[in-house]
């Protein structure tokens, strides 16, 4: 088992922590990605599309004003600026009569304030510190991906190592995951071929599947819309952070195209399952191409060239 995993180049948690998240990511840069407001600012400066910020509440007083401010918004997402693993995220739609709906359930204005207050108190933040409640526009699932997702917006995660995209997957919400796109909450993960932008395999609850359990749509060989652009944005966003090993979470919006949702300095390893491939051959290929890890990770290479490199590395390892 051990040898087989090694042969496949599967990256384990210890190695990820020691050699990638600890070695490539300067701790002082973590706040840039742990705080979604900070990430948003960074991306806007670089002209990278992000979901529009509709409101923010830093104080409990401000939380109380949220329902009034959002009364006429058709749909929005309430989330913590420093949340982890998709915790504390609330997706709300207007019911057309001035009320709020979460899925099918009516949410009272008090519920909304309470949730925002919980966020501000640090309930969902990484270390339990004081946090900011954000309200963002609700992104629309792209028409090509709509059949594949139930009750939520699918996102695309790209692992970017030293400025080069190495692996990608799309996370498709299911009814079981309650519209959330986290694999351990029951979402489907589908690996994406970097070169073609089409899904390769799909896993659900650690098991390989070929059809969506809710809609029975095929999950394999589905094209991800504007995938070249997805990779480009991921690379440009990580360039701005100065971090060497990052998971960029994006959504391909029906109207605006790919937007950066958040960046993650400790991306999970489940992406290997969705791609049925280990990360190490690709990471090693990047290290070989760019030289020793202690040289400047950020290369003067144009973004397009780096995307091409990543595509080449991924197809070589697949061969």
């Amino acid at each position: 088992m051990w040898r087989a995993l090694r042969r496949q180049g599967v990256l384990g948690i210890n190695r990820r922590n020691a050699c990638y998240t600890l070695a490539a990511n300067d701790r002082s840069l973590f706040p840039l990605v742990d705080d979604k407001l900070e990430t948003k600012r960074l991306c806007i400066e670089a002209g990278i599309p992000v979901p529009r910020l509709l409101a923010e509440a830093r104080l409990h007083v401000e939380a109380r004003g949220l329902p009034e401010a959002l009364r006429n918004v058709e749909s929005f997402v309430l989330k913590p600026a420093r949340g982890a693993m998709g915790n504390g995220i609330l997706v709300i739609h207007a019911d057309g009569k001035g009320g709020f709906l979460r899925g099918e359930r009516l949410v009272s204005p008090e519920d909304l304030v309470y949730h925002a207050a919980g966020i501000i108190s640090g309930l969902y933040s990484l270390a339990g510190h004081h946090d900011v409640a954000l309200v963002e526009e609700c992104l629309q699932t792209h028409i090509l991906l709509a059949p594949l997702s139930a009750g939520g917006v699918p996102d695309v995660r790209v692992i970017v190592y030293r400025g080069i995209p190495v692996m990608a997957m799309t996370r498709l919400p299911t009814e079981r995951s309650g519209g959330r796109a986290n694999l351990h909450q029951g979402a489907i993960g589908a690996g994406i071929d970097l070169a073609s932008g089409r899904t390769l395999f799909a896993v659900h609850k650690n098991r390989s599947i070929v059809r969506h359990p809710d809609s029975d749509q095929p999950l394999v060989d589905v094209p991800i819309p504007e995938f070249e652009r997805v990779l480009e944005i991921a690379v440009r966003a990580t360039d701005r952070t100065g971090l060497g090993y990052i998971g960029a979470d994006m959504v391909v919006d029906a109207v605006r195209g790919p937007v950066i949702l958040e960046l993650n300095a400790r991306p999970g390893l489940a992406i290997q399952l969705a791609n049925r491939a280990g990360l190490r051959p690709r990471l090693d290929a990047v290290d070989r191409a760019l030289g020793a890890p202690d040289t400047a990770w950020q290369q003067a290479l144009p973004v397009a060239e780096r995307v091409a490199m990543g595509q080449a590395f991924s197809s070589r390892s697949a061969a």
Binding site: M1, W2, A4, L5, R6, Q8, V10, G12, I13, N14, V203, N206, S208, L269, Q272, L273, R276, A277, G278
Partner: peptide, 12 residues
């Protein structure tokens, strides 16, 4: 690898 890694990625 951790023991848990071996279990988790056994499919690979």
């Amino acid at each position: 690898y951790r023991l848990a890694d071996l279990v988790r990625f056994r499919g690979l």
